[in-house]
Design a protein around this nucleic acid. Structure first.
Lengths: 112, 112
DNA sequence: ATAATCTAGTTACTTTATGTAACCAACTAT
DNA sequence: ATAGTTGGTTACATAAAGTAACTAGATTAT
């Protein structure tokens, strides 16, 4: 049904970033290795969706998951090289947002 | 409920690109002014969602809509300056996709 | 005159994605 | 025994997206 003329690799990348939260999760992990609950509270995402996203990103080789069987268990998430390579994308989004998003139209009202 | 520590402007930009199709529509319009049905077939999006996205992008000053009352009517969509400023973002996504998305994991199987 | 064609959508309906809140296992501290 | 900890999962509700049929207003074909 869909007959896009657009490069499949590009489409794949776009569809990744088109999933809600994926961009923010990667952005957050660019700050360094983090645990589940840290990402959750920093990004403001539900446990369910964060769990989905991390599994997805892991299966695509963008995020690495490490288990430390302490008590309570510690699980650390970090970016792989492929994930770190996303940095310029996020940087450009940030750059655009600073130049073009006015404070009246930002998303802060969505934090009620 | 949501307490993100992330810059509201950045969040706004990310939430824009996190909407399915938005990135592809902007990418397509970077090629130049286009009509509804051109975008539709190039991107492989339904009329309903394209209509939604274009209204959205227009209301955010990213897309410009021009009506030519010929018969049948011609409606042209193009990027504003704010829209064109998205080019580096899309360029970086393209760049990442060429380096990191393998042909086995691309999105072409979604075109059945 | 009537039917078919064109563009740029809209409408009703179905399926998928996301949000919400309660819950779980395993272990520790009290 | 009870509560607290982490990193989730589950069931259910709502929102977003996909599908296909349909519309307006004008033209063209039969």
């Amino acid at each position: 049904m869909k007959y896009s003329t657009i490069c499949p690799k590009f489409e794949k990348a776009i569809s990744l970033l088109s999933q809600r939260w994926t961009g923010l999760v990667i952005y957050q992990l660019l700050l360094g290795t983090q645990r589940f609950s840290e990402i959750q509270s920093a990004v403001g995402i539900s446990g369910k969706v964060l769990s989905d996203r991390l599994k997805d990103l892991e299966s695509q080789g963008i995020v690495k998951r490490e288990v430390f069987p302490e008590t309570p268990v510690i699980i650390e998430y970090s970016l792989t090289e492929k994930g770190h390579a996303m940095a310029p994308v996020l940087k450009e989004i940030e750059n655009w947002s600073q130049h073009w998003v006015t404070s009246e139209e930002d998303a802060s009202h969505e934090l009620d």
